[in-house]
């Protein structure tokens, strides 16, 4: 408990420094935020255009798809906000600057990730929240304390999957050159997490559940609310799988960091 409080205090301090340095590039900050909003609006327009032509997809109606969409946006916020420094990892590793993180008396992974907090992600959170509230309303879903707690847990565990994926993708830079492309490819998967996994053939259903687990980002947790009569076992297991995925990616990341020998400069 004492340790957690200690880490929280450190996080707050580092965060304040990061925000201060971001504020000194105000134009960049504002433009990046607008860019993020653009991305979300454009994603929504393409979603909307498709459903202008097709009333439902494989038994999922417009508002249910909207629910999945909003859920995935919220579940993808933590990776954007708290783990954005993964994108810079390969630059630090090549330039040799990564060595500075290795000499701190706190957890390496924690210290590295705490250095950047991406505020742009909050726009996405807002967008996703509005979408899911709208869909929730239109579908006439139940609102109670228990459901809200369930929703909260579902979102937190769903977010772990994308974090794990990005950690693993970023950590590849410890072994291979040009890992930027691995990250870009991994990041693209998030766009497909918003579709029901049932549209795929059995092979890819398996792949997207157990190999690249994007089905857990929105589909499996959403079943709890949209198909509450037939919730599969995987939905109940998803918190455990999420934590396990995160832990594995963390170990992988740390293994890479441990093998890091610096550039000698």
């Amino acid at each position: 408990m004492k340790r957690i409080r200690f880490y929280l205090r450190i996080y707050r301090k580092i965060l304040a420094q990061d925000l201060k340095s971001k504020m000194s590039y105000r134009a960049d900050f504002i433009i990046s935020t607008i860019g993020m909003i653009f991305t979300n609006v454009a994603g929504f327009i393409s979603f909307w255009v498709v459903f202008q032509n097709f009333p439902s997809v494989m038994g999922w109606n417009y508002h249910e798809m909207l629910f999945l969409y909003g859920f995935s946006l919220i579940a993808l916020t933590p990776v954007q906000c708290f783990f954005d420094n993964n994108w810079s990892l390969r630059h630090y590793v090549y330039s040799g600057d990564f060595i500075k993180y290795c000499f701190r008396p706190i957890n390496l992974f924690f210290y590295y990730m705490s250095e950047v907090f991406d505020i742009k992600g909050l726009g996405q959170l807002l967008f996703g929240s509005v979408t899911i509230i709208y869909a929730w309303n239109k579908l006439g879903l139940e609102v109670s304390v228990i459901v809200l707690v369930e929703l909260f847990i579902a979102i937190i565990t769903a977010s772990l999957f994308m974090i794990a994926l990005m950690n693993a993708a970023a950590a590849t830079c410890f072994w291979i050159v040009n890992s930027g492309y691995v990250m870009v490819t991994a990041f693209k998967f998030k766009d497909y997490s918003r579709y029901p996994v049932t549209i795929f053939s059995p092979v890819f259903r398996f792949v997207f559940t157990f190999v690249i687990p994007i089905a857990f980002i929105s589909y499996y947790p959403s079943l709890l609310f949209l198909r509450s009569n037939t919730v599969p076992l995987l939905t109940w297991l998803s918190p455990a799988i999420g934590v396990a995925s995160f832990y594995l990616s963390y170990k992988f990341w740390m293994k890479g960091a441990a093998s890091y020998s610096g550039t000698g400069s």
Binding site: D28, G35, F38
Partner: peptide, 13 residues
């Protein structure tokens, strides 16, 4: 602007 990411993502989208 001195902002690359934001400008580029807007264009791309």
């Amino acid at each position: 602007t001195e902002s690359i990411w934001g400008v580029n993502i807007m264009k791309e989208v």
